[in-house]
């Protein structure tokens, strides 16, 4: 009996320390980032990023190019990753017994584990070098490689969760297999699929490594997908070790925006969707 209590105590202590680590990361972003966001307010979302050295007067302070860049790069990545990941996920779930289905599943499970910087390197040599320049498009493509397996595995999971008898019920009504998969059970798989898509976006939005060699950098706001762009994650990497106080501040502000205004909301919505998955 005593031993049992001891073990439970140890398990609680270990899990508490894991929780503490998470709270420490989130807490330091909150404590350091929120004051900067409050200090500059709307300016952060409207102004360009200040240049490295400013000789005259007060610099304009802003993160707009990085915020827009993150949205654009992640958006491009999503547009590529969602259709490919979704179709792969359906194939994995419904044709998992075939060689092709098994191959896709192994591929997706492997890609999830591959260091994301390799996606950047691959896109650098196949797109950035031939096109002679960094671009939001190249960044999006690199991020899509990171996101595809997430979408695929979440999609596969939600299709697998639908009992076979439900699918057979649809087929027994003389419906085509594709009609059953994409129409009849749509309402059952949708929360899982959307949840996976949101998780993939959350994962992609936070990645810096694939963007270092692909999206490039720009202090100024650009909406051209063929031009280089800053992103929040790369800005954090670039400014996080700066000796300039202003850049350090911006790095914390970028962390706060990325984590508390983009990634965490996505994760929370994703979790809520999965919970709503009644049947």
């Amino acid at each position: 009996m005593r031993r049992g209590v001891l073990w439970i105590g140890i398990i609680y202590a270990i899990s508490l320390s894991a929780l503490a680590a998470l709270l420490w990361v989130l807490g330091s972003i909150l404590v350091n980032g929120l004051p900067v966001v409050l200090k500059y307010g709307a300016e952060l979302f409207l102004n360009d990023i200040p240049p490295p050295l400013f000789f005259f007067g007060e610099p304009q302070v802003g993160l707009a190019p990085a915020i827009v860049g993150t949205l654009m790069v992640t958006g491009i990545a999503f547009l590529i990753a969602f259709p490919l990941g979704f179709v792969s996920g359906v194939v994995i779930a419904e044709f998992g017994h075939t060689r092709w289905g098994r191959f896709l599943e192994d591929l997706a499970s492997t890609l999830v584990e591959v260091p994301t910087i390799t996606a950047g390197v691959a896109v650098y040599w196949t797109l950035v070098v031939p096109m002679k320049g960094f671009s939001a498009l190249a960044g999006g493509l690199a991020l899509s490689l990171v996101m595809i397996p997430y979408v695929a595995l979440y999609t596969a999971e939600s299709y697998r969760k639908v009992p076979k008898v439900i699918k057979e019920g649809g087929l027994a009504l003389g419906l085509k297999y594709t009609t059953v998969l994409f129409k009849v059970i749509r309402g059952l798989v949708l929360p899982g699929v959307v949840s996976g898509a949101l998780m993939a976006v959350a994962k992609g939005a936070g990645e810096a490594a694939p963007l270092l060699f692909t999206a490039g950098w720009s202090d100024r706001l650009s909406l051209d997908p063929f031009s280089p762009t800053a992103t929040l994650s790369v800005l954090i990497y670039k400014f996080g070790f700066s000796s300039q106080d202003l850049w350090l501040e911006l790095s914390w502000a970028a962390s706060f925006i990325l984590v508390f205004m983009i990634i965490l909301p996505l994760i929370v919505i994703s979790r809520l969707l999965v919970k709503r998955h009644v049947v």
Binding site: G169, A172, L173, L188
Partner: peptide, 13 residues
């Protein structure tokens, strides 16, 4: 048409 061993209506509809 077919009716199965366990009731399998589309639960979400």
């Amino acid at each position: 048409g077919m009716v199965f061993q366990r009731p399998n209506p589309f639960p979400h509809l």
